[in-house]
């Protein structure tokens, strides 16, 4: 009889606990829906082709975001051009060449530490190092170099995992045919790891697009279309920050936010698609 009482009480506790866990989990999903829908509902009506293709006027109070989009693209492309080769090379070294050693541990620590640094610190650093010390001024180049450092850890980590996941038999097969290690890496390992490497690059792009603190003090917030990478420019996130914090135009603020959210969706979706593709390929 006593047994039944105890079981009943532990069943009730279990029900209550699971219910609370469920509430919290649903809550997380609801938060996401609330934020995204709020932005889309308030911003979508103000999105138009004109908004995308017109240059901003009166500090963004009127007009569109064309120059902002151009600057964003410049910075994304330039950051990836810098970060991709360095990141992939670093991951090749870490995955294929490095032997366990103190040096390797220090390198790993450096990569992890870099990943943990807040963006405002990157902003400060970029400002003092690229903008002033190297005298690159507020420019797309200063911004891209700063962001390169910032996304490097993501790219290194994702690529390293992708390379390590390449089956051992592929390597052995190639080496057995008399290929050198480097040839094996170039012809066999990298091609097989490409989806994983791309995922890392896409996640890097996501960070660049979303970043504001580190860009504001390196690429500046000039609204003109940059005619070279040595000119300043304003990215979407910085534009959104400026519009919102200075209360410039509610409509344009939300419209810009919608563009940003749309980009985040696209980026996440493509990263997920790639990850799933890897998953399926590996299971075959």
């Amino acid at each position: 009889m006593n047994d039944i009482k105890i079981i009943t009480s532990s069943r009730i506790k279990e029900r209550v606990a699971f219910f609370l866990l469920w509430i919290f989990s649903i809550f997380t999903a609801i938060i996401l829906v609330l934020i995204v829908s709020d932005i889309i509902i308030k911003g979508a009506p103000h999105i138009s082709l004109d908004f995308l293709l017109e240059e901003p006027r009166k500090m963004g109070k009127e007009g569109g975001v064309f120059s902002v989009i151009v600057s964003t693209i410049y910075i994304v492309v330039l950051s990836i051009i810098f970060a991709a080769p360095i990141g992939v090379a670093a991951s090749v070294y870490l995955a294929e060449y490095a032997k366990e050693s103190t040096m390797l541990n220090i390198i790993r620590f450096g990569t992890e530490a870099l990943a943990g640094i807040p963006s405002i610190i990157y902003g400060l650093f970029g400002y003092s190092f690229f903008v002033f010390f190297l005298d690159l001024k507020y420019s797309i180049l200063s911004g891209a170099l700063t962001l390169t450092l910032m996304i490097l850890p993501t790219i290194i980590k994702t690529s390293e995992e992708a390379i390590k996941a390449v089956p051992k038999s592929y390597r052995e097969g190639s080496l057995a045919l008399g290929a050198t290690k480097l040839q094996t890496i170039r012809k066999i390992i990298i091609p097989d790891a490409i989806p994983g490497i791309l995922t890392g690059l896409i996640l890097g792009i996501g960070r660049v697009v979303g970043e504001s603190a580190a860009v504001l003090y390196t690429a500046g917030s000039s609204l003109g279309i940059p005619d070279s990478i040595f000119r300043p420019g304003r990215t979407l996130s910085v534009h959104l920050y400026t519009l919102a914090s200075e209360g410039i135009s509610i409509e344009n603020t939300y419209a810009t936010a919608v563009i940003l959210i749309a980009l985040v969706f696209i980026i996440n979706f493509s990263a997920n698609t790639l990850i799933n593709r890897i998953f399926i390929a590996r299971r075959r």
Partner: peptide, 18 residues
């Protein structure tokens, strides 16, 4: 829920701020 959490991680700070 999982993709939702990834999105939550991907949303830029300025959007949260807004």
């Amino acid at each position: 829920i999982k993709p939702g959490i990834e999105l939550l991680a991907g949303i830029p700070s300025v959007i949260y701020g807004l």
